[in-house]
Design a protein around this nucleic acid. Sequence first.
RNA 1: UGGGGUGUCGCCAAGUGGUAAGGCCCGGGGUUUUGAUCCCCGUAUGCGCAGGUUCGAAUCCUGCCACCCCAGCCA
Length: 564
Amino acid sequence: MTDDRTSEQASESPQASNFIRQIIDADVAAGKNGGKVVTRFPPEPNGYLHIGHAKSICLNFGIARDYDGAVCHLRFDDTNPTKEDLEFVEAIKTDVAWLGFDWQQNLFHSSDYFEQIYQFAIKLIELGKAYVCDLSAEEVREYRGTLTEPGRNSPWRDRSVEENLDLLERMRSGEFADGSRLLRAKIDMASPNINMRDPALYRVKHATHPITGDAWCIYPMYDFSHCLSDAIEGVTHSLCTLEFEDHRPLYDWVLDTLNTEHHPQQIEFSRLNLDYTVMSKRKLQTLVAEQKVSGWDDPRMPTISGLRRRGYTAAAIREFCQRIGVTRHDNVIEMGVLESCIREDLEAAPRVLGVINPLKLLITNYPAEQVEYLTAQNHPQYPEMGSRELPFSGELWVERDDFMEEPPKKFFRLGPGREVRLRYGYYITCTDVIKDADGEITEIHCTYDPATRGGSSPDGRKVKGTIHWVSVAHAVDAEVRLYDRLFSEPNPAAAGDDFLQLLNPDSLQVMANAKLEPSLAGAEAGTRYQFERLGYFCVDGEADGQAVFNRTVTLRDSWAKIKR
RNA sequence: UGGGGUGUCGCCAAGUGGUAAGGCCCGGGGUUUUGAUCCCCGUAUGCGCAGGUUCGAAUCCUGCCACCCCAGCCA
């Protein structure tokens, strides 16, 4: 992974406000929490982070960055040992840091608080606000009622404090089997909010935890551990997505009932949706498990690691999060917004010539064996980025798409009898088209005008098209991977479990025979370039042997629009 | 048909009673040795709908409509 040299030049938009920052502004102005602001990003380490998490990271860490003395904690919400793994905590730390955020010494785990949370459970029992329930999972569901009908009280709801205390302790000591008993809050089985119908607080799970190992065989539920973890850490503003809104009364109930020292304010915002992809961790997991992609970091994945490998910069992702805003409206952001962000950042990348789908071009009047060196700017707008010498000869590779035997009206490129400019080179005119037995074009012949060296003609005549090229004798072989949207439908998630049917069969196109200018030999993994006229490309760090370039994004292409 | 939310341009999104920001996309034009970049210009008499209050309403009130979330011992 190399530095974002491009990002340093691009300026990010000024920090936009949003309704959450407005709430915090007001809180700070009112001196609430002693003027302190503490946020937290609380991922469950059961998968890799995606661009939706980036939204939350930028929100939470961005607030910590912008408010005086504020901090943002990174807390792993690791309360379900059967789903979580250390591999994921490492990947998450890498991604947060790569995005440019620093949790300083504030790295925590919900499991750090297991003992404290357990003590809170005891206190709840002592307050008569929790009980051990012997109902089976199925019975609990039956007793819960439905959305429109109230639930019924569990027959175990009125056990004595002593019995509950004894039972909880025995749950902890491993006396009971998984699923046999549950610690439940005693709230209201008739509540219209289902979360308040005596929610589970602790379940028995004889499982080895990635961090606490076998120290525990009971684990707290999200609704119990999350609010307490926030309170223990002195979080002031607990930001989460909209689906947790119904849980807020429970969040507040736990903290109010336990009368904790701190009582963070939960504020919900809408999660990010991007078109032509999926964002749920479960679906991303499926793509990986079913090997529809090469892994969590497949460059087609909307994961942070996938985007990184695709060639996205952290600055572009931050800018994206900036542009999409933070509200409570459901939203589906068009891929074009993300693409616009990376194009803007990569505009500053060095230019280079590379042919992805090579077609041989012979300059019949160019002196045999002659090689000359032509000066090429590394960036058309930034002379300070310098220049390089491109070897030129009578045998070149050009892009197959830049030649048409029967060109349509607005095609500016090469065709029989047409003259175009070779970038930084000469004007050439097509004289012959050579085909094989199947009628495939194998080679084209041209003549060049020696007076046009460097790309302009002394007689002032104009050519409409300029095409890129690479000298055959000097070309570097490479594999280039062209990526497109992962799904062919804007909203694949709408298909439910059938979403895999909607995968775009052309999401990856491997161009195994690409020819690049010699300066690209030995390019370092992670380095980004603009292949002129084609797009932005990044050296893949994962491939060994032959160089592999991933296409991050194409250039804007108004020709593609005309073609349509 | 219980509860909780949300509706401002194709997609996002400002707007907090004083007469609809901005971005992306799109369209038109200019510069250009990348059909790139860059630069101009254009795009809601209208804010889910219908009433009402007001000198004045996207903002307040009433009633509808549409969409999203919730019945894991997941988070």
